[in-house]
Amino acid sequence: MILRTLAFLCLGGFLSIVPSLSYAGILEDKDCGSCHRLSVEDTKKKFSGPDLHFAGNKFQPKWLKQFLQNPGVIRPAGIITNPGFLQGPPENLPPHPSFLEKDARTLANSLTDLKISGQPLEPVIIEPLSKGQRAKIKYKFERTFSCISCHQSLNLAGKVRGGLSGPSLVNAGNRLQADWVANWLNTPEVYTAKSRMPRYKMDSATRTEFSQFLMTLKKEPASRR
């Protein structure tokens, strides 16, 4: 009986490890680590792509899978640490590889497992914003905190506007997790040693408002938002 229990526990443990091994395997197989930081410990190398060691905290799994099948440009000016970042949008930026549905799903699952443990948690409850609330937050987004100077966003009519040096927020509502947005605004140093974005000291209510506002930014017809 004891032996059977031990065997069961071992098998259970093995099974719970297998998926993460295969996830890690596919990240290695596809050589994701050559451009992206996949581990907190990996601090020595300079990466040409964005850090993904907290992809599970940051991205929505559904978006990850779609992006991996049909990649688009999120950082029109390239990566902030790359030489030539300030020279203008890189014309010959190598396209991100695209993957078949099966691989994209496994890769997305694998990336979703990459999380920073013990990150400050700031759960954001997503409530629908009225047009008036959106307009009020958009005012803060553009005028009080000047976010529009570096990030592309959508105006109230759904038109794209804004700067290029920061990642585009046009589809932030499908791409990012609301909790991550609030955490990033609160403690960016948890995710990156040095960003080009100003550090803000927002109160919790403003961080929540910004998260909720970004969740409304979606590449969809305005009527569906």
Binding site: L86, S149, L164
Partner: peptide, 23 residues
């Protein structure tokens, strides 16, 4: 200056950073 300001004000400070035309 190069890390933060040049994004908008340009590498040489001429007001022609990568965000300039979109502001």
């Amino acid at each position: 200056y190069q890390w933060y300001c040049a994004q908008c004000h340009g590498i040489e400070g001429k007001g022609n950073g990568i965000n300039a035309k979109l502001l």
